[in-house]
Design a binder for these strands. Sequence first.
DNA 1: AACCAGGCGCATA
DNA 2: TATGCGCATGGT
Length: 282
Amino acid sequence: MTQITANFSNSLCERPLAIDGISDFDLAETLDCGQAFRWNPAPDGSFTGVAAGRACRVARRGNELLLYGVPQEDYDRFWFSYFDLGRNYRQIKQELSADPVLARAVAYAPGIRVLNQDPWEALASFIISQNNNVKRIKGIIERLCALCGEPIEGGFYAFPTPEALAARTPEDLAPVRAGFRARYLIDAAQKAVSRQIDLAALRTLPLPEAREMLMRITGVGVKVAECALLFGCGRVECFPVDVWIGRVMRQLFPDGLPACAAGYEGIAQQYLFHYARTSGML
DNA sequence: AACCAGGCGCATA
DNA sequence: TATGCGCATGGT
């Protein structure tokens, strides 16, 4: 008996693409630290997720990164950048560690990398994140993708495009159980479709203008705008301040971030966020 | 049963 | 400019 349709078990269990020479990259620390919400761990330590319409399973084997279901071309065009593999984290961590508090945060989870996510997915995800917890954020995004996203091979769903959400009403999104955030999502989608928000320009626009543009969306304030720029637009100098980072700043950096973080505030932020949230220091 | 979760909009002073 | 409150939902 033959099966013609490729499915999850096929494409994600084939021989993986192996990338050698990987360092400063821990899958759990990076994929389960609250910067992306579509990665799920397996008992063997691998993670399966969807980003920018592509599903993949990732694992580590020594110094190799194993990518299942990923053609070489997709790695070159997307995943290499997504996992930020072109950036020298060893050097950045060394510079951050000039400050003793940052040094502790870096040493606590030295395998964190800041992912380069799609601008729209990051924006929508962090709209959903407000006044919410990571577990429920993931559930909302999963239901949103299943309801409004395009099916992709393997039983996964792409993140819904702005076009797919712009035509919906809050009532349409009721099954997603996003609460008061549903209308924020729709407003963001409509402004993206109408080009009131130029998602591509956010990558290069002067930061004050980029922030101002994002904050024209109902439900996008300073923090969500900063997250969209850091996680979705490659702006590693952005520094989102949530409740955890607020505590860190009051208690550990009353005079502001140390100078050694200049230019990499967003990367420092991710080490600090994870440290504050999971180490029990506060 | 209050309180909290990767906040924000709005009213009020 | 600065506070304070309500907001949907679900987990402690």
